[in-house]
Amino acid sequence: MTDPFVQTRNLTKTFYEESRGEVRAVDGVDLTCSSGEIFGLLGANGAGKTTTLRMLSTVLRPTSGEAWVMGHEVRKDPERVRGNLGFYSASTALYPKITARETLRFFAQVNRFPRERIESRIEDLIDRFGIRDFADSRVEKLSSGMKQKVSIARTVAHDPPVLIFDEPTVALDVLNAIELRQIIAALRDEGKAILFSTHIMSEAEQLCDRIAIIHQGRILAVGTLDELREATGHHYLEEIFVHFARVRDPEEAELESLRRDRP
């Protein structure tokens, strides 16, 4: 088997909060993601999904542990790490004053895509994502659906082998969300390694090849949907998620069983 495109070992991030003191937002996470795979991070808000992905994109520094993207370690070689990945989330906005085409050119340039191939790459992206009609309009004038297309195109502008989608559908309407999922699946089929975080169970069920259930900063279980079903005896991902979350909180599980036992 070839080396995974993304790998983490005991990845940990602690924050200090005045009200709560030291908080382990991510606690010893191990994960891998290989070419042609969508790896889902499933967890509630505050579970540590975004923090994990931000460490992988080198925006946050791990407190301890290691993480590699295409063999480059996030702390030792952050530029190479970022050059090999595209990061998409609801909070990665576009520059309003430049056109769609200029946006793609800008991100190809800052990501050091070979200069002589930039223009042809832009044309390819414009065709592929259906941007042609508004390629020369300023981003601020585009509808949210159009912006979404430009946003995905800029994420892959430099053709990175690894893509990170951090709750990408969170602010989208149903149709745009479906379209985005189709695009992500297509990118997987091209051989990209895709990390996908969500708190929507159905989305993870549909899209992810492997799912990690993350709760309070820890990965509680990893596997394909079938493996997770087998391990828990539950069919729906929602039940599977609740199952693992209970195991994690023994006190809560005990309370729950007490409640159940009561006549």
């Binding site: 925006v59 530029e79 990061f87 990501n111």
Partner: peptide
């Protein structure tokens, strides 16, 4: 955020 996740 977008800029910081680029290779610059």
């Amino acid at each position: 955020n977008t800029l910081l996740t680029s290779a610059a």
